[in-house]
Measured scan of single mutants.
Amino acid sequence: MTYKLISNGKTLKGETTTEAVDAATAEKVFKQYANDNGVDGEWTYDDATKTFTVTE
């Protein structure tokens, strides 16, 4: 399945996607992506749209 990340960081804003077997796997990928880009904030997940959002 395709999962989307919306980043509302102070230094990184935008969207990216990943293919993953489940939401937990996608979350690990996205949290590593955010960490690699210096984004640390509040996370939410919408199962209906398969979208994670991180806001700093």
Results as ranks from 00 to 15, higher is better:
Thr18Asp: 01
Lys28Thr: 08
Gly41Glu: 02
Trp43Gln: 01
Thr53Ala: 05
Lys13Cys: 15
Glu27Ile: 06
Tyr45Asp: 01
Thr18Ala: 08
Gly38Ala: 06
Thr44Gly: 07
Asn8Gln: 10
Val54Cys: 05
Asn37Asp: 03
Ala48Cys: 10
Val39Phe: 11
Ala34Phe: 04
Ala48Pro: 06
Phe52Cys: 00
Ala48Phe: 10
Thr2Val: 13
Thr17Ala: 07
Glu27Lys: 08
Ala24Thr: 09
Thr53Arg: 06
Lys31Arg: 15
Glu42Ser: 10
Tyr45Ser: 01
Thr53Trp: 10
Leu12Asn: 07
Asp36Ile: 10
Leu12Gln: 08
Asp47Pro: 14
Thr16Pro: 04
Asn8Ile: 15
Val21Ala: 12
Asp47His: 10
Thr2Phe: 07
Glu42Cys: 11
Thr44Arg: 08
Glu19Ile: 15
Tyr33Ala: 02
Phe30Arg: 00
Ser7Met: 15
Ala20Asn: 03
Glu27Thr: 03
Asn37Cys: 11
Lys31Tyr: 06
Glu15Tyr: 13
Ile6Phe: 07
Ala48Tyr: 10
Lys50Asn: 07
Thr44Lys: 09
Ala26Ser: 01
Lys28His: 08
Lys13Val: 11
Ala24Asp: 10
Ala26Thr: 01
Glu56Cys: 07
Thr17Leu: 10
Asn8Tyr: 14
Leu12Ile: 11
Val29Ser: 05
Lys50Ala: 05
Tyr45Arg: 01
Gly9Arg: 04
Leu12Trp: 15
Thr44Asn: 08
Gly14His: 14
Ile6Gly: 02
Glu15Leu: 13
Trp43Phe: 05
Gln32Ala: 12
Lys4Ile: 13
Asp22Phe: 03
Thr16Trp: 15
Thr25Gln: 12
Asp47Thr: 07
Lys13Ser: 11
Phe52Gly: 01
Thr16Gln: 09
Phe52Leu: 00
Lys28Trp: 08
Trp43Lys: 00
Lys10Phe: 12
Lys4Thr: 15
Lys31Trp: 06
Asp36Asn: 09
Glu27Arg: 06
Asp40Glu: 13
Asp46Thr: 04
Thr17Tyr: 15
Phe52Trp: 06
Lys28Arg: 11
Thr17Ser: 10
Glu42Ala: 09
Tyr3Arg: 00
Glu27Met: 14
Tyr45Thr: 00
Thr18Met: 11
Thr16Cys: 14
Thr11Ala: 11
Tyr3Pro: 02
Asn37Gly: 05
Thr53Asn: 04
Glu56Gly: 06
Lys13Glu: 08
Val39Asp: 02
Phe30Gln: 00
Lys13Tyr: 11
Gly41Ala: 03
Thr49Leu: 07
Thr51Leu: 03
Thr11Tyr: 14
Phe30Gly: 02
Gly9Met: 12
Asp22Pro: 00
Thr51Gln: 04
Thr11Phe: 13
Lys28Ile: 11
Ser7Thr: 15
Thr2Gly: 04
Ala34Val: 08
Asp22Ile: 02
Glu42Pro: 03
Phe52Glu: 01
Gly41Asp: 01
Glu56Trp: 11
Lys28Asn: 07
Val21Thr: 12
Val39Arg: 02
Ala20Ser: 05
Asn35Gln: 15
Gly14Pro: 10
Ser7Gly: 06
Thr44Met: 08
Val21Phe: 12
Gly41Asn: 02
Tyr33His: 04
Glu42His: 12
Ala24His: 09
Tyr45Ile: 00
Glu19Val: 15
Glu15Gln: 09
Ala34Trp: 07
Lys13Met: 11
Thr16His: 14
Thr49Lys: 06
Thr44Trp: 07
Ala20Arg: 02
Asn35His: 15
Thr11Val: 12
